[in-house]
Simulated assay, not measured.
Amino acid sequence: MSAFDLHGRRALVTGGAQGLGQGMAEALAAAGAAVVIGDVNDELGRETAQLIGKTGATTGFVHLDVTDESSWAAAVTATVAELGGLDVLVNNAGVEITSLVVDIDPRDLRRMLEVNVVGTALGMKHGLRAMRPGGEAGAGGAIVNVSSVAATIAFPGIAGYSGTKSAVDRMTRIAAAEAGRLGYGVRVNCIYPGLVPTAMGMQLAVDCAELGLFESPEAAVGAVVGLTPSGRLGEVADMADAVVFLASDAARFVNGTGLSVDGGMGS
């Protein structure tokens, strides 16, 4: 049996209705895991779950507003009830609002803090509580948080976003240390995705051009590629495969760290 085989594992993926989250949910299911998608977009989330289910995988959907504690508690309970446990949590839900530092809107910054920082923190809180001994699932597991290459580089236009993703990195490492010290049996890691041409990624390029930082969205994308030793943008599959790795037994001794999946951009 491959160390990447996830048969028998039960996973919850936040922001799984589209983009990177959808790709991560699909990859986990392809590796054998049963997957519940958590998202605020009920219609799209159910459609994505049904799409994955057509492959023969066990899937489901639960409404999840990652900024709301009661929503988290209900989503985790529903996932455990539907799948019979919880072994993998992927904290992927996130938002990016581009702005020059001199023009930062406190409302935009608070929105990113709520989703990217508070949402991830609450996910780890309820994931650890469910997975630790005596929890609703109680069999240990793995938590994978989605940070960003923005946490490791100084790219114009994304100061607020970079700050929130840097926070995800620090919280990941502390959660891993606490889980280990307290014997939870849960590994906690994060990934640093590079720029991927999803709707969110391409909007960033458009925004940077509109702010006058680059001549055009194409020039913004070209700047990213120019900073990337691999010479290309990332693909959804690149990020999804990294999540499968960190969720699997192949990463059994990988804990409290951040995995760069950025083609070398942040090195």
Score class of each variant (00 low, 15 high):
M1T: 10
M1L: 14
S2A: 12
R10G: 14
R10F: 13
R10N: 14
L12Y: 10
L12D: 12
L12M: 11
A17P: 04
L20I: 12
G21Q: 02
G21L: 03
M24H: 06
A25N: 07
E26F: 11
A27P: 05
A27E: 13
A27Q: 07
L28Q: 06
L28G: 11
A29T: 03
G32T: 13
G32K: 08
A33W: 11
A33I: 08
V35E: 06
D39Y: 03
D42R: 13
R46S: 09
R46D: 08
E47W: 05
L51I: 13
T55K: 07
T59F: 07
G60C: 12
F61M: 07
L64A: 02
V66L: 01
E69N: 11
S70E: 15
S71D: 06
S71E: 10
W72Q: 09
A73N: 10
A73P: 02
A74Y: 09
A81N: 03
E82N: 10
L83S: 09
G84R: 09
L86E: 04
L86I: 01
L86Y: 02
L86C: 02
D87E: 11
V88F: 14
I97T: 03
I97Q: 03
T98P: 01
S99R: 04
S99V: 03
V101C: 09
V101Y: 08
V102M: 14
R107Y: 12
R107N: 14
L109V: 11
L109N: 10
M112H: 00
E114V: 04
V115S: 00
G119K: 00
M124V: 13
H126T: 08
G127H: 14
G127A: 14
G127P: 06
L128W: 05
A130T: 00
M131V: 06
R132Q: 15
G135T: 02
E136C: 09
E136T: 14
A137D: 08
G138I: 09
A139R: 11
G140M: 05
G140D: 02
G141V: 07
V146L: 15
S147R: 12
S148L: 08
V149L: 13
A150E: 12
T152P: 07
I153F: 04
G160V: 12
Y161S: 03
S162W: 10
K165A: 08
A167K: 04
V168D: 15
R170E: 13
I174H: 13
A175R: 03
G183M: 15
V186P: 05
V186K: 01
V186C: 05
V188C: 06
V188L: 08
P193A: 02
P197H: 02
M200G: 00
M200E: 00
G201F: 05
G201T: 03
M202A: 05
M202S: 04
Q203E: 13
L204T: 11
A205M: 08
A205R: 00
D207W: 03
F214R: 00
F214V: 04
F214S: 00
A219I: 05
A220D: 01
G222L: 12
L227S: 11
T228M: 03
P229G: 05
G234S: 09
G234D: 04
V236P: 00
M239S: 10
M239N: 11
M239I: 15
A240Q: 06
D241S: 13
A242N: 03
A242I: 02
L246R: 08
A247T: 03
S248G: 10
D249N: 08
D249Y: 05
F253L: 14
F253G: 06
N255A: 10
G256K: 11
G256H: 11
T257W: 11
S260M: 15
D262R: 04
G264T: 04
M265V: 09
